[in-house]
Design a protein around this nucleic acid. Sequence first.
DNA 1: TGTACATCAGTGAACGCGCGTTCACTGATGTAC
DNA 2: TGTACATCAGTGAACGCGCGTTCACTGATGTAC
Lengths: 232, 232
Amino acid sequence: MNDSAAPSGRVRARADMTDRIKETARRHLAADGPNLSLRAVARDLGMVSSAVYRYFASRDDLLTALIIDGYDSLGAAAEQAEAAVVGRNPAGRWLALGRGIRAWARENPHEYALLYGSPVPGYAAPQDTIGPASRTVVVFVAILRDAAERGTAVASGGPRLPAAVRADLERLRTLPGFGKVPPLVFARGMTAWAQLFGTLSFELFGRLTNAVEDYDAYFEYQLRAMANYVGL
Amino acid sequence: MNDSAAPSGRVRARADMTDRIKETARRHLAADGPNLSLRAVARDLGMVSSAVYRYFASRDDLLTALIIDGYDSLGAAAEQAEAAVVGRNPAGRWLALGRGIRAWARENPHEYALLYGSPVPGYAAPQDTIGPASRTVVVFVAILRDAAERGTAVASGGPRLPAAVRADLERLRTLPGFGKVPPLVFARGMTAWAQLFGTLSFELFGRLTNAVEDYDAYFEYQLRAMANYVGL
DNA sequence: TGTACATCAGTGAACGCGCGTTCACTGATGTAC
DNA sequence: TGTACATCAGTGAACGCGCGTTCACTGATGTAC
Protein backbone atom coordinates (compact mmCIF):
# COMPACT_ATOMS: atom_id res chain seq x y z
CA MET A 1 0.00 0.00 0.00
CA ASN A 2 2.61 2.50 1.11
CA ASP A 3 5.50 1.32 -0.97
CA SER A 4 6.12 4.41 -3.08
CA ALA A 5 8.67 6.81 -1.72
CA ALA A 6 8.96 10.44 -2.75
CA PRO A 7 5.61 11.71 -3.97
CA SER A 8 3.31 11.96 -0.99
CA GLY A 9 -0.01 13.53 -0.17
CA ARG A 10 -2.23 14.79 -2.91
CA VAL A 11 -0.14 13.71 -5.86
CA ARG A 12 0.01 10.15 -4.63
CA ALA A 13 -3.65 10.10 -3.71
CA ARG A 14 -4.41 11.27 -7.21
CA ALA A 15 -2.27 8.57 -8.79
CA ASP A 16 -3.86 5.93 -6.55
CA MET A 17 -7.37 7.03 -7.38
CA THR A 18 -6.57 7.11 -11.09
CA ASP A 19 -5.37 3.54 -10.80
CA ARG A 20 -8.44 2.45 -8.89
CA ILE A 21 -10.71 3.94 -11.52
CA LYS A 22 -8.84 2.18 -14.30
CA GLU A 23 -8.82 -1.08 -12.39
CA THR A 24 -12.55 -0.91 -11.82
CA ALA A 25 -13.15 0.04 -15.43
CA ARG A 26 -11.05 -2.95 -16.53
CA ARG A 27 -13.32 -5.21 -14.51
CA HIS A 28 -16.30 -3.65 -16.22
CA LEU A 29 -14.87 -4.49 -19.63
CA ALA A 30 -15.84 -8.07 -18.90
CA ALA A 31 -19.50 -7.31 -18.34
CA ASP A 32 -20.12 -4.35 -20.61
CA GLY A 33 -17.45 -4.65 -23.22
CA PRO A 34 -16.01 -1.44 -24.59
CA ASN A 35 -19.29 0.39 -23.89
CA LEU A 36 -18.48 0.55 -20.24
CA SER A 37 -20.44 2.97 -18.09
CA LEU A 38 -18.73 5.77 -16.21
CA ARG A 39 -21.55 5.85 -13.73
CA ALA A 40 -21.23 2.14 -13.00
CA VAL A 41 -17.51 2.55 -12.41
CA ALA A 42 -18.12 5.46 -10.06
CA ARG A 43 -20.81 3.49 -8.25
CA ASP A 44 -18.43 0.59 -7.68
CA LEU A 45 -15.96 2.97 -6.14
CA GLY A 46 -18.57 4.51 -3.88
CA MET A 47 -18.23 7.90 -5.45
CA VAL A 48 -20.53 10.14 -7.37
CA SER A 49 -20.31 9.90 -11.14
CA SER A 50 -19.20 13.47 -11.65
CA ALA A 51 -16.15 12.86 -9.47
CA VAL A 52 -14.64 10.69 -12.17
CA TYR A 53 -14.30 13.82 -14.28
CA ARG A 54 -11.57 15.01 -11.92
CA TYR A 55 -9.49 12.17 -13.36
CA PHE A 56 -10.67 11.65 -16.91
CA ALA A 57 -12.10 14.31 -19.16
CA SER A 58 -14.58 11.93 -20.76
CA ARG A 59 -15.56 8.32 -21.19
CA ASP A 60 -13.44 8.10 -24.31
CA ASP A 61 -10.43 9.38 -22.40
CA LEU A 62 -10.85 6.61 -19.88
CA LEU A 63 -11.14 4.10 -22.69
CA THR A 64 -7.98 5.44 -24.28
CA ALA A 65 -6.16 5.09 -20.96
CA LEU A 66 -7.31 1.47 -20.73
CA ILE A 67 -6.10 0.79 -24.26
CA ILE A 68 -2.70 2.34 -23.64
CA ASP A 69 -2.36 0.46 -20.36
CA GLY A 70 -3.37 -2.71 -22.16
CA TYR A 71 -0.71 -2.33 -24.82
CA ASP A 72 1.86 -1.49 -22.19
CA SER A 73 0.89 -4.43 -20.05
CA LEU A 74 1.05 -6.82 -23.00
CA GLY A 75 4.26 -5.20 -24.20
CA ALA A 76 5.88 -5.63 -20.80
CA ALA A 77 4.73 -9.25 -20.61
CA ALA A 78 6.15 -9.92 -24.06
CA GLU A 79 9.46 -8.25 -23.25
CA GLN A 80 9.80 -10.15 -20.01
CA ALA A 81 8.92 -13.48 -21.56
CA GLU A 82 11.55 -12.99 -24.19
CA ALA A 83 14.13 -11.58 -21.81
CA ALA A 84 13.74 -14.64 -19.60
CA VAL A 85 15.29 -16.84 -22.28
CA VAL A 86 18.08 -14.45 -23.22
CA GLY A 87 20.88 -16.20 -25.06
CA ARG A 88 18.56 -18.84 -26.47
CA ASN A 89 18.44 -19.21 -30.24
CA PRO A 90 15.82 -17.30 -32.25
CA ALA A 91 13.41 -20.23 -32.32
CA GLY A 92 13.48 -20.49 -28.55
CA ARG A 93 12.93 -16.78 -28.18
CA TRP A 94 9.99 -16.89 -30.60
CA LEU A 95 8.40 -19.67 -28.60
CA ALA A 96 8.91 -17.71 -25.38
CA LEU A 97 7.42 -14.61 -26.96
CA GLY A 98 4.40 -16.44 -28.33
CA ARG A 99 3.74 -18.21 -25.06
CA GLY A 100 4.10 -14.94 -23.19
CA ILE A 101 1.59 -13.20 -25.45
CA ARG A 102 -0.86 -16.04 -25.08
CA ALA A 103 -0.49 -16.19 -21.32
CA TRP A 104 -1.19 -12.49 -21.07
CA ALA A 105 -4.18 -12.76 -23.39
CA ARG A 106 -5.70 -15.59 -21.40
CA GLU A 107 -5.23 -13.69 -18.17
CA ASN A 108 -6.73 -10.55 -19.67
CA PRO A 109 -9.20 -11.76 -22.29
CA HIS A 110 -11.30 -8.62 -22.32
CA GLU A 111 -8.33 -6.37 -22.67
CA TYR A 112 -7.12 -8.60 -25.47
CA ALA A 113 -10.50 -8.19 -27.15
CA LEU A 114 -10.22 -4.45 -26.71
CA LEU A 115 -6.82 -4.38 -28.38
CA TYR A 116 -7.19 -7.03 -31.07
CA GLY A 117 -10.92 -7.54 -31.48
CA SER A 118 -13.44 -5.46 -33.35
CA PRO A 119 -12.80 -1.74 -33.33
CA VAL A 120 -15.03 0.14 -30.90
CA PRO A 121 -17.79 1.85 -32.91
CA GLY A 122 -17.50 5.61 -32.78
CA TYR A 123 -14.12 5.53 -31.09
CA ALA A 124 -11.00 6.67 -32.89
CA ALA A 125 -7.75 5.67 -31.23
CA PRO A 126 -5.54 8.71 -30.75
CA GLN A 127 -1.88 8.87 -31.67
CA ASP A 128 -0.76 8.08 -28.10
CA THR A 129 -1.68 4.45 -28.60
CA ILE A 130 0.77 3.86 -31.44
CA GLY A 131 3.94 3.69 -29.37
CA PRO A 132 2.66 1.23 -26.74
CA ALA A 133 0.98 -0.80 -29.48
CA SER A 134 4.28 -1.48 -31.18
CA ARG A 135 6.21 -2.83 -28.19
CA THR A 136 5.38 -6.46 -28.92
CA VAL A 137 6.23 -6.01 -32.58
CA VAL A 138 9.60 -4.56 -31.64
CA VAL A 139 10.44 -7.67 -29.63
CA PHE A 140 9.49 -9.85 -32.56
CA VAL A 141 11.50 -7.87 -35.09
CA ALA A 142 14.57 -8.12 -32.87
CA ILE A 143 14.24 -11.90 -33.02
CA LEU A 144 13.90 -11.82 -36.80
CA ARG A 145 16.93 -9.58 -37.07
CA ASP A 146 18.98 -11.87 -34.89
CA ALA A 147 17.96 -14.88 -36.93
CA ALA A 148 18.85 -13.06 -40.12
CA GLU A 149 22.26 -12.14 -38.75
CA ARG A 150 22.95 -15.72 -37.74
CA GLY A 151 21.90 -16.79 -41.18
CA THR A 152 19.38 -19.33 -39.96
CA ALA A 153 16.42 -17.57 -41.52
CA VAL A 154 17.08 -18.19 -45.16
CA ALA A 155 13.63 -18.30 -46.61
CA SER A 156 13.50 -20.12 -49.88
CA GLY A 157 10.69 -21.57 -51.89
CA GLY A 158 7.19 -20.27 -51.57
CA PRO A 159 5.62 -17.64 -53.79
CA ARG A 160 7.57 -14.76 -55.24
CA LEU A 161 7.23 -11.47 -53.36
CA PRO A 162 5.02 -9.16 -55.42
CA ALA A 163 6.60 -5.80 -56.14
CA ALA A 164 4.04 -3.89 -54.10
CA VAL A 165 4.64 -6.07 -51.06
CA ARG A 166 8.37 -5.72 -51.50
CA ALA A 167 7.95 -1.96 -51.62
CA ASP A 168 6.02 -1.98 -48.34
CA LEU A 169 8.70 -4.08 -46.73
CA GLU A 170 11.50 -1.86 -47.99
CA ARG A 171 9.71 1.09 -46.46
CA LEU A 172 9.41 -0.70 -43.14
CA ARG A 173 13.12 -1.45 -43.20
CA THR A 174 13.82 2.25 -42.81
CA LEU A 175 12.29 2.18 -39.32
CA PRO A 176 14.83 2.04 -36.50
CA GLY A 177 15.70 -1.54 -35.61
CA PHE A 178 14.07 -3.02 -38.68
CA GLY A 179 16.94 -2.53 -41.09
CA LYS A 180 18.78 -5.81 -41.17
CA VAL A 181 15.85 -8.11 -41.85
CA PRO A 182 15.75 -9.33 -45.48
CA PRO A 183 12.39 -8.74 -47.17
CA LEU A 184 11.56 -12.38 -47.60
CA VAL A 185 12.22 -13.17 -43.97
CA PHE A 186 10.20 -10.14 -42.99
CA ALA A 187 7.32 -11.27 -45.18
CA ARG A 188 7.32 -14.67 -43.56
CA GLY A 189 7.52 -13.02 -40.20
CA MET A 190 4.35 -11.11 -40.95
CA THR A 191 2.72 -14.34 -42.00
CA ALA A 192 3.64 -15.90 -38.69
CA TRP A 193 2.53 -12.85 -36.75
CA ALA A 194 -0.93 -12.89 -38.32
CA GLN A 195 -1.09 -16.62 -37.76
CA LEU A 196 -0.25 -16.21 -34.08
CA PHE A 197 -2.94 -13.60 -33.48
CA GLY A 198 -5.40 -15.45 -35.68
CA THR A 199 -4.96 -18.60 -33.64
CA LEU A 200 -5.17 -16.66 -30.39
CA SER A 201 -8.35 -14.86 -31.45
CA PHE A 202 -9.88 -18.15 -32.58
CA GLU A 203 -9.16 -19.59 -29.16
CA LEU A 204 -10.27 -16.63 -27.07
CA PHE A 205 -13.31 -15.75 -29.12
CA GLY A 206 -14.55 -19.31 -29.01
CA ARG A 207 -14.09 -20.13 -32.67
CA LEU A 208 -12.42 -23.47 -31.94
CA THR A 209 -15.04 -24.82 -29.58
CA ASN A 210 -15.80 -28.47 -30.41
CA ALA A 211 -12.74 -28.64 -32.64
CA VAL A 212 -9.80 -28.26 -30.30
CA GLU A 213 -9.73 -29.70 -26.81
CA ASP A 214 -6.13 -29.25 -25.74
CA TYR A 215 -5.52 -25.59 -26.48
CA ASP A 216 -2.06 -25.62 -24.94
CA ALA A 217 -0.86 -28.37 -27.22
CA TYR A 218 -2.59 -26.83 -30.20
CA PHE A 219 -1.06 -23.42 -29.70
CA GLU A 220 2.35 -24.88 -29.03
CA TYR A 221 2.18 -26.81 -32.28
CA GLN A 222 1.18 -23.71 -34.21
CA LEU A 223 4.05 -21.74 -32.68
CA ARG A 224 6.55 -24.40 -33.64
CA ALA A 225 5.09 -24.67 -37.11
CA MET A 226 5.58 -20.94 -37.61
CA ALA A 227 9.10 -21.01 -36.16
CA ASN A 228 9.91 -23.64 -38.72
CA TYR A 229 8.18 -21.75 -41.51
CA VAL A 230 10.03 -18.51 -40.84
CA GLY A 231 13.30 -20.39 -40.49
CA LEU A 232 14.08 -19.43 -36.92
CA MET B 1 -41.16 -5.63 -55.67
CA ASN B 2 -43.72 -8.15 -56.81
CA ASP B 3 -41.46 -10.87 -58.05
CA SER B 4 -42.35 -13.67 -55.66
CA ALA B 5 -45.08 -15.97 -56.80
CA ALA B 6 -47.15 -18.16 -54.52
CA PRO B 7 -47.19 -16.64 -51.06
CA SER B 8 -49.17 -13.45 -51.29
CA GLY B 9 -50.77 -11.01 -48.94
CA ARG B 10 -49.98 -11.14 -45.27
CA VAL B 11 -47.31 -13.82 -45.39
CA ARG B 12 -45.33 -11.96 -48.00
CA ALA B 13 -45.78 -8.64 -46.26
CA ARG B 14 -44.46 -10.25 -43.11
CA ALA B 15 -41.41 -11.65 -44.85
CA ASP B 16 -40.76 -8.30 -46.51
CA MET B 17 -41.01 -6.41 -43.24
CA THR B 18 -38.75 -8.90 -41.49
CA ASP B 19 -36.18 -8.32 -44.20
CA ARG B 20 -36.49 -4.57 -43.94
CA ILE B 21 -35.94 -4.68 -40.21
CA LYS B 22 -32.85 -6.84 -40.60
CA GLU B 23 -31.54 -4.65 -43.36
CA THR B 24 -31.96 -1.53 -41.27
CA ALA B 25 -30.39 -3.25 -38.28
CA ARG B 26 -27.43 -4.24 -40.43
CA ARG B 27 -26.91 -0.61 -41.33
CA HIS B 28 -26.98 0.24 -37.66
CA LEU B 29 -24.20 -2.23 -36.95
CA ALA B 30 -21.87 0.27 -38.55
CA ALA B 31 -22.76 3.08 -36.19
CA ASP B 32 -23.60 1.29 -32.97
CA GLY B 33 -21.76 -1.97 -33.24
CA PRO B 34 -23.42 -5.01 -31.76
CA ASN B 35 -25.22 -2.84 -29.20
CA LEU B 36 -27.68 -1.71 -31.80
CA SER B 37 -30.86 -0.06 -30.64
CA LEU B 38 -34.26 -1.54 -31.44
CA ARG B 39 -35.83 1.86 -31.10
CA ALA B 40 -33.43 3.42 -33.57
CA VAL B 41 -34.18 0.67 -36.07
CA ALA B 42 -37.92 1.18 -35.64
CA ARG B 43 -37.50 4.92 -35.99
CA ASP B 44 -35.63 4.50 -39.27
CA LEU B 45 -38.51 2.44 -40.57
CA GLY B 46 -41.08 5.01 -39.49
CA MET B 47 -42.72 2.64 -37.09
CA VAL B 48 -43.19 2.61 -33.37
CA SER B 49 -40.64 0.61 -31.40
CA SER B 50 -43.11 -1.90 -30.02
CA ALA B 51 -44.06 -2.92 -33.56
CA VAL B 52 -40.69 -4.59 -33.99
CA TYR B 53 -41.80 -7.12 -31.39
CA ARG B 54 -44.28 -8.52 -33.92
CA TYR B 55 -41.20 -9.75 -35.80
CA PHE B 56 -38.53 -10.42 -33.20
CA ALA B 57 -39.15 -11.47 -29.64
CA SER B 58 -36.25 -9.43 -28.31
CA ARG B 59 -33.16 -7.48 -29.22
CA ASP B 60 -31.04 -10.59 -28.80
CA ASP B 61 -33.28 -12.47 -31.20
CA LEU B 62 -32.73 -9.81 -33.82
CA LEU B 63 -28.99 -10.00 -33.22
CA THR B 64 -29.09 -13.76 -33.60
CA ALA B 65 -30.93 -13.38 -36.89
CA LEU B 66 -28.25 -10.98 -38.10
CA ILE B 67 -25.52 -13.39 -37.11
CA ILE B 68 -27.17 -16.32 -38.85
CA ASP B 69 -27.78 -14.23 -41.95
CA GLY B 70 -24.17 -13.10 -41.82
CA TYR B 71 -22.82 -16.64 -41.72
CA ASP B 72 -25.18 -17.64 -44.49
CA SER B 73 -24.23 -14.68 -46.61
CA LEU B 74 -20.53 -15.33 -46.15
CA GLY B 75 -21.07 -19.05 -46.66
CA ALA B 76 -22.90 -18.46 -49.91
CA ALA B 77 -20.21 -16.05 -51.09
CA ALA B 78 -17.53 -18.60 -50.26
CA GLU B 79 -19.38 -21.41 -52.01
CA GLN B 80 -19.96 -19.33 -55.11
CA ALA B 81 -16.39 -18.11 -55.27
CA GLU B 82 -15.13 -21.66 -55.12
CA ALA B 83 -17.78 -23.02 -57.47
CA ALA B 84 -16.79 -20.42 -60.07
CA VAL B 85 -13.42 -22.11 -60.53
CA VAL B 86 -14.70 -25.66 -60.53
CA GLY B 87 -12.24 -28.07 -62.09
CA ARG B 88 -9.25 -25.97 -61.11
CA ASN B 89 -6.58 -27.58 -58.97
CA PRO B 90 -6.76 -27.29 -55.16
CA ALA B 91 -4.41 -24.32 -55.04
CA GLY B 92 -6.59 -22.39 -57.48
CA ARG B 93 -9.69 -23.23 -55.49
CA TRP B 94 -8.03 -22.12 -52.26
CA LEU B 95 -7.12 -18.80 -53.85
CA ALA B 96 -10.67 -18.35 -55.09
CA LEU B 97 -12.06 -19.21 -51.67
CA GLY B 98 -9.73 -16.83 -49.87
CA ARG B 99 -10.42 -13.99 -52.27
CA GLY B 100 -14.15 -14.60 -51.98
CA ILE B 101 -14.03 -14.48 -48.20
CA ARG B 102 -12.01 -11.29 -48.27
CA ALA B 103 -14.30 -9.64 -50.82
CA TRP B 104 -17.31 -10.42 -48.69
CA ALA B 105 -15.59 -9.15 -45.56
CA ARG B 106 -14.63 -5.88 -47.21
CA GLU B 107 -18.16 -5.38 -48.46
CA ASN B 108 -19.61 -6.21 -45.05
CA PRO B 109 -16.98 -5.11 -42.55
CA HIS B 110 -19.37 -4.72 -39.64
CA GLU B 111 -20.93 -8.10 -40.18
CA TYR B 112 -17.44 -9.55 -40.41
CA ALA B 113 -16.65 -7.94 -37.06
CA LEU B 114 -19.85 -9.38 -35.64
CA LEU B 115 -18.89 -12.88 -36.76
CA TYR B 116 -15.13 -12.90 -36.26
CA GLY B 117 -14.41 -10.02 -33.90
CA SER B 118 -14.82 -9.80 -30.17
CA PRO B 119 -17.72 -11.73 -28.73
CA VAL B 120 -20.68 -9.53 -27.85
CA PRO B 121 -20.70 -9.07 -24.05
CA GLY B 122 -23.71 -10.69 -22.45
CA TYR B 123 -24.76 -12.43 -25.63
CA ALA B 124 -24.56 -16.19 -25.95
CA ALA B 125 -24.88 -17.50 -29.50
CA PRO B 126 -27.59 -20.15 -29.67
CA GLN B 127 -27.17 -23.51 -31.37
CA ASP B 128 -28.84 -22.29 -34.56
CA THR B 129 -25.69 -20.41 -35.49
CA ILE B 130 -23.47 -23.49 -35.65
CA GLY B 131 -24.70 -24.83 -38.96
CA PRO B 132 -24.44 -21.59 -40.93
CA ALA B 133 -21.09 -20.85 -39.26
CA SER B 134 -19.54 -24.00 -40.67
CA ARG B 135 -20.42 -23.46 -44.33
CA THR B 136 -17.12 -21.79 -45.16
CA VAL B 137 -15.17 -24.44 -43.30
CA VAL B 138 -16.93 -27.15 -45.28
CA VAL B 139 -15.79 -25.58 -48.54
CA PHE B 140 -12.24 -25.45 -47.29
CA VAL B 141 -12.21 -29.03 -46.06
CA ALA B 142 -13.46 -30.21 -49.45
CA ILE B 143 -10.42 -28.56 -51.03
CA LEU B 144 -8.10 -30.19 -48.53
CA ARG B 145 -9.71 -33.56 -49.18
CA ASP B 146 -9.34 -33.18 -52.90
CA ALA B 147 -5.70 -32.22 -52.53
CA ALA B 148 -5.11 -35.22 -50.30
CA GLU B 149 -6.74 -37.52 -52.82
CA ARG B 150 -4.63 -36.16 -55.62
CA GLY B 151 -1.61 -36.65 -53.44
CA THR B 152 -0.37 -33.08 -53.85
CA ALA B 153 -0.71 -32.26 -50.17
CA VAL B 154 2.06 -34.36 -48.73
CA ALA B 155 3.12 -32.36 -45.75
CA SER B 156 6.59 -33.19 -44.60
CA GLY B 157 9.05 -31.45 -42.38
CA GLY B 158 7.90 -29.08 -39.70
CA PRO B 159 7.30 -29.98 -36.08
CA ARG B 160 5.93 -33.33 -35.04
CA LEU B 161 2.21 -33.41 -34.30
CA PRO B 162 1.76 -33.62 -30.52
CA ALA B 163 -0.41 -36.53 -29.43
CA ALA B 164 -3.15 -34.26 -28.07
CA VAL B 165 -3.39 -32.37 -31.35
CA ARG B 166 -3.43 -35.61 -33.27
CA ALA B 167 -6.27 -36.83 -31.06
CA ASP B 168 -8.30 -33.69 -31.79
CA LEU B 169 -7.72 -34.15 -35.50
CA GLU B 170 -8.69 -37.82 -35.40
CA ARG B 171 -11.92 -36.82 -33.72
CA LEU B 172 -12.62 -34.23 -36.40
CA ARG B 173 -12.07 -36.83 -39.08
CA THR B 174 -15.17 -38.64 -37.92
CA LEU B 175 -17.31 -35.69 -39.06
CA PRO B 176 -19.04 -36.20 -42.42
CA GLY B 177 -16.84 -35.03 -45.27
CA PHE B 178 -13.72 -34.72 -43.13
CA GLY B 179 -12.62 -38.33 -43.29
CA LYS B 180 -10.07 -38.51 -46.03
CA VAL B 181 -7.79 -35.68 -44.93
CA PRO B 182 -4.56 -36.92 -43.31
CA PRO B 183 -3.90 -35.41 -39.89
CA LEU B 184 -0.79 -33.54 -40.90
CA VAL B 185 -2.50 -31.95 -43.87
CA PHE B 186 -5.42 -31.09 -41.68
CA ALA B 187 -3.11 -29.50 -39.12
CA ARG B 188 -1.49 -27.35 -41.78
CA GLY B 189 -4.91 -26.49 -43.07
CA MET B 190 -5.89 -25.15 -39.68
CA THR B 191 -2.69 -23.16 -39.62
CA ALA B 192 -3.60 -21.60 -42.95
CA TRP B 193 -7.18 -20.97 -41.88
CA ALA B 194 -6.09 -19.05 -38.77
CA GLN B 195 -3.55 -17.20 -40.88
CA LEU B 196 -6.21 -16.17 -43.37
CA PHE B 197 -8.57 -14.81 -40.74
CA GLY B 198 -5.71 -13.30 -38.81
CA THR B 199 -4.57 -11.39 -41.86
CA LEU B 200 -8.12 -10.35 -42.68
CA SER B 201 -8.79 -9.13 -39.16
CA PHE B 202 -5.52 -7.22 -39.16
CA GLU B 203 -6.57 -5.52 -42.38
CA LEU B 204 -10.17 -4.78 -41.44
CA PHE B 205 -9.51 -3.78 -37.86
CA GLY B 206 -6.79 -1.37 -38.92
CA ARG B 207 -3.86 -3.23 -37.44
CA LEU B 208 -1.75 -2.86 -40.59
CA THR B 209 -2.14 0.88 -41.03
CA ASN B 210 1.21 2.48 -41.85
CA ALA B 211 2.70 -0.93 -42.53
CA VAL B 212 0.89 -2.20 -45.61
CA GLU B 213 -0.20 0.05 -48.44
CA ASP B 214 -1.30 -2.39 -51.12
CA TYR B 215 -3.66 -4.65 -49.23
CA ASP B 216 -4.67 -6.56 -52.36
CA ALA B 217 -1.12 -7.56 -53.13
CA TYR B 218 -0.39 -8.29 -49.50
CA PHE B 219 -3.37 -10.57 -49.06
CA GLU B 220 -2.71 -12.30 -52.34
CA TYR B 221 0.84 -13.03 -51.26
CA GLN B 222 -0.32 -14.43 -47.93
CA LEU B 223 -2.86 -16.65 -49.67
CA ARG B 224 -0.23 -18.03 -52.01
CA ALA B 225 2.20 -18.52 -49.15
CA MET B 226 -0.38 -20.60 -47.31
CA ALA B 227 -1.30 -22.58 -50.43
CA ASN B 228 2.34 -23.45 -50.74
CA TYR B 229 2.67 -24.24 -47.04
CA VAL B 230 -0.28 -26.61 -46.99
CA GLY B 231 0.90 -28.23 -50.21
CA LEU B 232 -2.13 -27.43 -52.33
C1' DT C 1 5.87 28.10 13.73
C1' DG C 2 1.67 30.25 12.35
C1' DT C 3 -1.52 32.35 9.37
C1' DA C 4 -3.88 33.64 4.85
C1' DC C 5 -4.80 32.04 0.63
C1' DA C 6 -5.01 28.83 -3.37
C1' DT C 7 -5.81 24.37 -4.99
C1' DC C 8 -8.61 20.75 -5.96
C1' DA C 9 -11.21 16.06 -4.79
C1' DG C 10 -15.61 14.96 -4.17
C1' DT C 11 -20.86 16.26 -3.67
C1' DG C 12 -25.56 16.57 -5.14
C1' DA C 13 -28.78 18.20 -8.14
C1' DA C 14 -30.06 18.82 -12.60
C1' DC C 15 -30.38 18.60 -17.95
C1' DG C 16 -31.78 16.16 -21.70
C1' DC C 17 -31.58 12.14 -23.51
C1' DG C 18 -32.08 7.09 -24.81
C1' DC C 19 -33.18 2.42 -23.90
C1' DG C 20 -35.98 -2.58 -23.90
C1' DT C 21 -40.22 -4.28 -23.02
C1' DT C 22 -45.38 -4.65 -21.81
C1' DC C 23 -50.11 -3.88 -22.68
C1' DA C 24 -54.71 -2.73 -24.06
C1' DC C 25 -56.30 -0.93 -28.29
C1' DT C 26 -57.76 -0.26 -33.38
C1' DG C 27 -58.52 -1.42 -37.84
C1' DA C 28 -57.25 -3.71 -41.92
C1' DT C 29 -56.60 -8.30 -43.99
C1' DG C 30 -57.80 -12.92 -44.40
C1' DT C 31 -60.93 -17.33 -43.73
C1' DA C 32 -65.07 -20.27 -43.21
C1' DC C 33 -69.53 -21.04 -44.18
C1' DT D 1 -71.10 -13.99 -53.84
C1' DG D 2 -71.79 -12.23 -49.27
C1' DT D 3 -71.54 -12.11 -44.45
C1' DA D 4 -69.58 -13.16 -39.60
C1' DC D 5 -65.69 -14.00 -37.32
C1' DA D 6 -60.67 -14.62 -36.38
C1' DT D 7 -56.13 -13.13 -37.08
C1' DC D 8 -52.61 -10.07 -36.50
C1' DA D 9 -49.63 -5.66 -37.87
C1' DG D 10 -49.08 -1.53 -36.00
C1' DT D 11 -50.32 2.25 -32.32
C1' DG D 12 -49.53 5.03 -28.31
C1' DA D 13 -48.84 5.38 -23.68
C1' DA D 14 -46.48 3.88 -19.92
C1' DC D 15 -42.94 1.52 -16.67
C1' DG D 16 -38.61 1.73 -14.78
C1' DC D 17 -34.36 2.25 -15.82
C1' DG D 18 -29.64 3.99 -17.23
C1' DC D 19 -26.59 7.12 -19.41
C1' DG D 20 -22.70 11.26 -20.13
C1' DT D 21 -21.89 15.64 -18.83
C1' DT D 22 -22.28 20.36 -16.48
C1' DC D 23 -22.25 23.28 -12.60
C1' DA D 24 -22.18 25.72 -8.30
C1' DC D 25 -20.84 24.12 -3.87
C1' DT D 26 -18.07 22.47 0.38
C1' DG D 27 -14.31 21.32 2.89
C1' DA D 28 -9.96 19.22 3.36
C1' DT D 29 -5.11 19.47 1.87
C1' DG D 30 -1.26 21.98 0.47
C1' DT D 31 1.79 26.44 -0.28
C1' DA D 32 3.83 31.07 0.46
C1' DC D 33 5.13 34.42 3.41
